[in-house]
């Protein structure tokens, strides 16, 4: 029976809460809370992607586009129209959902990997729009002067405050997703992954569930994009390119696609790899990722979160 244990979640939450203090006392990792904001932002996307890919078995190669939609909607509406950032965040999520329905409905009604193709094309188109609609998006130069976030006069204006905001949202998404997985909807999604024929014979409206989970993943990516824009106060298209979509896939493959925990482990690891540990590879970074991905798919088909299972297997023998 699929039961996600509470204890590790509580332990992880405690770790996230105390981590900034630990990092504060060790100069070598003093910048880690800042990195963890990015890790958290990526976690939001990978949690949705893990439900979409790992559980429901649908492939999206365009998740960066939803991330970009969130970021650009927030940026454009706050900078050009002076609207409230929170309001823009919600608008971003609504637009991302609408776009997900438009892209998802035609491709998810068909069996097979049409969604992968459609989202690949969609990601490229959105990236072009970000570059070319200069009047609104600023083109390759991007948009600067995006306001920070504040709530009832409380400004999220330090790394620490933003860190807690982002991680609060990550935990909310994490728990929501875990609840879905352990429910009727979650079972339907996992059923679809294995057999669409059997699922629909059990009364599961297969295309409806596929679209729903795709929309959910788009909403989380859009939220992540808005958080990114309001944190950096500046965005440009290169953040939302095809390579980032691929990087997201690497995250969940590395962490493990069949458990939401994998999404978190993968997002962490790739964040630290790309910001800290793989710096000296520079343009060869892509190759390093390629090698990592290759090794993981061959030796750890269930990702890093699959390791405990493998170890247990050794002891049983």
């Amino acid at each position: 029976m699929l039961r996600i244990r509470k204890l590790p979640i509580i332990g992880f939450a405690l770790f996230i809460i105390v981590f900034p203090w630990i990092a504060g006392t060790i100069p070598a990792i003093g910048n880690y809370p800042d990195l963890m904001i990015f890790a958290g932002i990526y976690c939001l996307i990978t949690i949705g992607l893990s439900l979409l890919m790992g559980y429901a078995g649908q492939i999206s190669l365009g998740q960066a586009a939803f991330y970009g939609i969130g970021a650009y909607v927030s940026a454009i509406l706050t900078v050009h129209f002076g609207l409230s950032p929170w309001f823009c965040m919600v608008i971003g999520m609504l637009i991302a959902s609408a776009v997900a329905v438009l892209v998802g409905v035609p491709s998810l009604k068909l069996r097979g990997h049409y969604l992968a193709m459609a989202t690949l094309a969609f990601g490229i188109i959105v990236f072009i729009v970000f570059n070319e609609e200069i009047e609104w998006t600023g083109g390759p130069d991007g948009i600067s002067g995006i306001p920070g976030l504040s709530l009832f006069g409380f400004e999220f204006d330090t790394v620490l405050k933003y860190y807690y905001l982002v991680w609060f949202l990550v935990f909310a998404a994490f728990i929501f997703t875990i609840n879905v997985i352990q429910s009727r909807s979650g079972r339907a999604l996992r059923a679809i992954h294995i057999s669409e024929a059997a699922s629909s014979a059990m009364g599961v409206n297969v295309s409806r569930f596929k679209i729903m989970v795709f929309v959910y993943s788009a909403i989380l990516a859009s939220l992540a994009g808005s958080l990114y824009a309001h944190y950096l106060n500046f965005i440009n298209p290169s953040t939302f390119d095809l390579f980032f979509s691929i990087k997201l896939l690497i995250m969940i493959a590395l962490g493990g696609m069949h458990e939401v925990w994998g999404a978190i482990v993968g997002a962490f690891l790739v964040t630290f790899l790309s910001f800290e540990w793989l710096h000296f590879f520079e343009e060869f970074e892509v190759i390093v990722y390629g090698i990592i991905l290759l090794l993981v798919t061959i030796f750890l088909p269930h990702g890093l979160v699959g390791i405990p299972g493998i170890v247990k297997g050794w002891f049983r023998r």
Binding site: R187, A188, A191, I194, S195, A198, M202, G203, V204
Partner: peptide
């Protein structure tokens, strides 16, 4: 065509999908 990623019980629980 069982759902091989699920337990015996969960397979039957998917069967309950349409009545809930």
């Amino acid at each position: 065509e069982l759902f091989t990623n699920m337990s015996v019980l969960e397979n039957v629980m998917v069967g309950c999908h349409t009545r809930t």
